[in-house]
Design a protein around this nucleic acid. Structure first.
Lengths: 130, 130
DNA sequence: CTCTCTGCAAAACATTTGCAGTCGG
DNA sequence: CCGACTGCAAATGTTTTGCAGAGAG
């Protein structure tokens, strides 16, 4: 009952392939468009379903853009980390933050909070973009 | 042309009043419901428009919940700060993070990024909620 | 009076779901 | 073959917008 079947369909392979090549984050619609451009027609709902599956399998990261869309990105590292994103070109660097994790724990305990968790996104302009 | 008129209407006052009393974050729908409960009937679009106006005037904070709604909260401090939110009761503590700001700058410069900005939300379970 | 604000209904969006047909194993 | 997967259309839920009428200054 912990096991999921997960068949290998053309559509599943196509979505996974796009995520492989993807540099930075992309919305479901952008991924859907990228598939069409490659000549691999996949229904939008199927894109959503497969992205959801990949996210459940922790093979992609999910985050919300400021205007409310969900963005997806293939994750390189397994461990907890954050993304440093260039606001011009979208280039992404994954950063570990032991100092941050410690700070969060400290702020929590100063205020009587336990079982801390957090979400952080960092934006900046990268060197290539001036 | 930098000046906005901003009339004092019953609806504007009602929305502002609800935000005054609000403890923690609330969605537009919750605020709309709260207005109805107070006997102050205000159209939903008007609630959205006034919340937007308050956010533009930096009198309320805006953030996205995990399921994509925008949440609003009256802001106590003027300066940049973050929210420590109890995941049980929604109680909110505003925290300053000089250490965090420094860490963000450092991570940025290590990777050649400038003009850093960031968004952070911290969650935990507060002492009152065990 | 004038011009902004409001309310309603309709539109715009991203995302999800129901269902019948398709196809992997 | 069987059941998971797909595609389409319709449904959902949130936020935005067009427009005619109301009301602040």
């Amino acid at each position: 009952m912990t096991e999921a079947p997960l068949r290998t369909t053309r559509q599943r392979r196509a979505v996974a392939a796009v995520m492989e090549d993807l540099d930075g984050f992309a919305s479901a619609r952008e991924i859907h468009d990228a598939l069409r451009d490659r000549g691999e027609s996949v229904g939008l709902s199927t894109v959503y379903r497969n992205l959801q599956a990949l996210a459940d399998a922790e093979e992609v990261d999910q985050l919300r853009s400021d205007d409310g869309e969900v963005l997806y990105r293939r994750c390189v590292t397994d461990h907890h980390h954050h993304h440093l994103v260039c606001r011009e070109c979208g280039r992404t660097v994954e950063v570990q933050g032991p100092a941050l994790e410690r700070w969060v724990e400290q702020v929590g305990s100063e205020n009587g909070f336990r079982q801390m968790s957090h979400t952080l996104e960092i934006f900046g302009t990268c060197d290539r973009c001036r």
